[in-house]
Design a protein around this nucleic acid. Structure first.
Lengths: 191, 191
DNA sequence: ATACTTTCTTAATCTAGGTTAAGTGCAAAA
DNA sequence: TTTTGCACTTAACCTAGATTAAGAAAGTAT
């Protein structure tokens, strides 16, 4: 059973025909590290589901500094939600940071599937609800925790990602400079 | 036409019967300033839609400091999403900060309405999508903008709220102390 | 293997924003 | 009407984390 179907069936159950229909509307592609799936200024046309590998989304702010928004590894979805739903150019980049096999679901097909399999409306609602809750928690953490505590939380939540992501990108995710991150890490190891 | 129905029909259209059914599952209540609608540790049973007045959600972190998550005025929804969907005790407070008339929709009725009016599944999906996008942007802003720039964005986005919310709560929302906010405001006025 | 590029580290210096403390103004109790 | 309490201000001092700069390590390409 494909990972993506397992993922969906965690929240809604599908008949064999529905599974087949769903899969027929998706496309599997492989990408090498450093591939850019989406550029800032482009319209995001697909949601990406990760079968293997790691992705990150980021933007580049005025200071020419990359700011990481999210990572996605096996079993996670990734897209520029703003651009995807508004159909306007977004400001996120999506990049492959570890060779990846992805399931591509175009926005067009996603909308089509909503009408053909209404249960999927529920599935994606739940998916986004969970994402919203996670973002709210991260927002509060960023406002009230120290960099050290945010790093600790990151380690607990994504223990398997730490070894697979360049350290400077973790630094960016938790919101500190690579230099400060390095210093902080050295301090933590000394304990 | 009730504000809440107008709000829903921005995204999906309802038949007169559906409108009536929807309204029959809600309840209108009035609350005075300082009423607590939800306490930390309680399970959030309702979504609140604001007909008039202002609400805020916040939590109290270890340092005994209130951290504002969100405000809601006319036409906005408010709930502790985490608690509402997980049915577990949350850590948010929801408080009335200006006398309010609210539409209450219990989680129970919301789930019931999902099955009776499947279109609502779409409505709430879209609502949450928009909320997610807003939270993502705020997260990125907190990671890459100065307090001054965050305040400026807040003023642009919620110009009508500024006069209605105690300044220390705006400070908390953008993530600075009341003292620093006061200093910053004085500096901005000098310009 | 060698050169080239990028990541990571260390350290000195700097600053946005926090902390502490004291005082002002004002609305609500009493 | 006084008192109490809260919201806001100002100012001195402090610190987490940024910036700058330079070198070390580790990939990557030639």
């Amino acid at each position: 059973m494909p990972l993506i179907i397992e993922n969906i069936e965690k929240h809604v159950s599908l008949t064999p025909e529905e599974k087949e229909l769903f899969l027929s509307k998706t496309e599997i592609k492989k990408y090498k590290t450093k591939s850019i799936l989406l550029n800032s200024g482009d319209i995001c046309e697909h949601s990406y589901f990760v079968n293997s590998g790691v992705l990150r989304s980021f933007n580049i702010n005025d200071n020419i500094v990359e700011q990481v928004l999210n990572f996605a590894s096996e079993g996670w979805w990734m897209a520029d939600m703003y651009s995807l739903i508004s159909k306007k150019p977004g400001n996120l980049f999506i990049e492959v940071i570890e060779d990846a096999e992805l399931v591509l679901l175009s926005k067009e097909n996603q909308d089509l599937l909503y009408t053909e399999i209404p249960k999927l409306e529920r599935f994606f609602r739940i998916l986004i609800e969970n994402s919203l809750v996670a973002h709210q928690e991260r927002l509060m953490d960023n406002l009230s925790l120290s960099a050290e505590d945010r790093f600790e939380k990151f380690c607990k939540r994504y223990p398997n990602l730490i070894q697979r992501i360049p350290q400077k990108q973790i630094a960016s995710y938790i919101g500190v400079t690579p230099e400060f991150f390095s210093k902080m890490k050295a301090k933590l190891l000394r304990k």
